[in-house]
């Protein structure tokens, strides 16, 4: 197992290079894709700018501390996490259900490499990383404003920044696990066209600060998306570690939630791996 590790990294780098070469063959198309990804993102920002215009310096949820600059950090984290997922996993998972339908998955089995690895990393959609850049920009703006504001400025150290990226990685892992499990179901269903829709509708819940669900029947959603399908912690934990909307930190985050995030990441990874191999066992080739 241990001597296989460097090989996987090199294989992945080759995949990434190939994808880049392919994208650079059609540069204008690449450029248009980047622009279109960015314009949707900017519209998303516009929506929140309008909301904060009406909120008039009040936080997004009462007593939560998500004011405009704190929320910029949150929004930037959303863009960063989702752009990574979009770039590295989305094209592959979409391809996967097509491989099953056409029976071309047979050829993947024949390759002397871990099937899940090959399925997950074969393609990289570089243009999706345009939003990663946008996320970094907005993150910089948000953090810079927070640390330089005169009233209760934020102080950050290296540990905060490292923890932030660690939890971003956890978030990406959780989303990846969810995605690969969903994709694996297309082995049982034959075809899973609404996969992308379902993915979009479910992950939509993770794009907001978790305080907004902290009321009446929202609590059941909060419980569901924190403990059963832990997508609420994907953005909330890293964003909260960096922006710290409540200074000093209130009851929402502290050791319990950040510890739970690590646990959830591991559990998700293990379960998705199980689901994937279980699904592969029921694969019947569709080709001749």
């Amino acid at each position: 197992m241990s001597e296989q590790q460097p090989v996987l990294v090199r294989v992945f780098l080759t995949f990434a290079r190939n994808s880049l070469v392919r994208e650079m063959t059609f540069r204008t198309n690449f450029f248009i894709q980047c622009v279109s990804a960015i314009s949707w993102t900017l519209m998303n920002l516009g929506f929140y700018l309008i909301i904060f215009h009406h909120l008039n310096r009040k936080p997004l949820a009462d007593g939560s501390g998500w004011q405009q600059n704190e929320f910029f950090v949150f929004l930037a984290t959303t863009w960063i996490v989702f752009s990574i997922v979009q770039a590295f996993f989305m094209p592959n998972v979409q391809e996967f259900s097509e491989l099953i339908r056409t029976g071309n998955l047979d050829f993947v089995f024949l390759k002397p490499i871990d099937t899940q690895f090959l399925i997950s990393f074969a393609k990289v959609d570089w243009s999706a990383l345009a939003n990663f850049v946008m996320g970094i920009l907005l993150l910089t703006v948000g953090v810079w404003r927070l640390t330089t504001q005169s009233n209760n400025p934020l102080s950050l150290n290296l540990a905060n920044v490292l923890l932030y990226w660690f939890y971003v990685a956890c978030g990406v892992t959780i989303l990846y696990s969810l995605m690969i499990s969903l994709a694996a179901t297309s082995i049982w269903l034959g075809r899973n066209q609404s996969l992308y829709d379902f993915w979009f509708y479910i992950t939509n819940f993770s794009r907001y600060p978790m305080e907004i669900y902290a009321r009446s029947w929202g609590w059941s959603l909060w419980g569901l998306f924190t403990f059963v399908i832990p997508i609420l912690i994907v953005i909330n934990v890293p964003a909260r570690i960096l922006a710290r909307p409540l200074r000093p930190e209130g009851p929402w985050l502290g050791l319990p939630l950040s510890g739970f995030a690590i646990l959830a990441t591991l559990v998700c990874l293990v379960i998705s791996r199980r689901v994937f191999s279980l699904a592969l066992q029921s694969y019947r080739s569709a080709s001749s």
Partner: peptide
């Protein structure tokens, strides 16, 4: 619903 609920409550 929950987003606007929180926003209106905050306002």
């Amino acid at each position: 619903i929950f987003l606007w609920w929180a926003i209106f409550e905050s306002i």
